[in-house]
Simulated scan of single mutants.
Amino acid sequence: MSRGHRAVAHTADIALEAWADTREECLAEAVRALVESFADISHVPPGETVPVSVTGESDEAMLAAVLQEVLYQVEVHDRVAVDASVGERAEVRLRMVPVETVEQVGAMPKAIAVHELRFGQAGKVWQAHVVVDV
């Protein structure tokens, strides 16, 4: 199984890439990439599980909706996703902790940009690329 994520150079914003063997694992990696762009979650135990409903007409729209939900949870409910699981029908479960339990390490993202958004299968691996407005 191969999965991971990284930040890549991008003018004035943050670009994130994630990859995994399945669509669902790649979505979860994208969530981790987004959260790690602004919070150190390396030593935070998973908290409460929050099921969220997201929809999208395409894989790219689904990716954007999941990541926007992560930002919404921080802004509205003061909680940060430290882990994510995505079911085959895009049932998303975020493991959340209070925002005060994580150390902020970067600028808080404002939104997920729709330009340069890519999410799909390349060979046997799913890949995501997203630009995050900060």
Rank of each mutant, 00 (worst) to 15 (best):
S37N: 14
V8W: 10
A7H: 13
D40M: 04
R89F: 12
E25N: 14
S58M: 13
M1A: 00
T22C: 14
W19S: 02
T55F: 10
V74G: 01
P51M: 07
L67A: 00
T101L: 10
V97Q: 05
I41E: 03
L27K: 04
H129N: 10
D83L: 04
R89S: 15
S42R: 14
Y72K: 11
Q127C: 05
V35F: 03
R32Y: 06
A30T: 09
R3N: 06
T101W: 15
V80N: 01
G120F: 13
L71Q: 02
M62Q: 07
L16F: 06
D40F: 03
V132D: 00
V132H: 02
R23W: 10
D78K: 09
T22Y: 03
H77S: 01
V134N: 05
H43F: 09
A90Q: 03
V80C: 03
V134A: 05
A9G: 06
V54Q: 05
A61S: 15
A28Y: 13
L16P: 02
D78I: 03
V130W: 00
V131G: 04
Q104C: 04
D59T: 15
P45N: 10
D59C: 12
P51D: 06
H43N: 14
V99H: 12
V99G: 02
D21E: 13
E75P: 01
A107H: 10
D59A: 15
H77E: 00
A128W: 08
Q73P: 01
E69I: 01
A111S: 08
M1Q: 04
V74M: 01
Y72D: 12
V80Q: 03
L117C: 10
D13K: 08
Y72V: 09
H115Y: 15
V130S: 02
P98V: 07
E100F: 08
R6I: 02
A33H: 13
L63V: 05
A20N: 05
A90P: 01
Q68W: 00
A9K: 15
E29M: 12
E116F: 15
V97K: 08
P46W: 02
S53A: 09
V76Y: 11
F119T: 04
E25M: 13
W126P: 03
R32M: 08
A12Y: 12
V66L: 03
P46Y: 01
A128Y: 08
E48A: 15
A90F: 05
P46K: 03
L71W: 01
H77T: 03
L63W: 14
E91Q: 12
T101H: 11
H129L: 11
V35H: 10
E57D: 11
V66D: 02
A12C: 09
E69S: 11
Q104K: 12
L117Y: 06
Q104D: 05
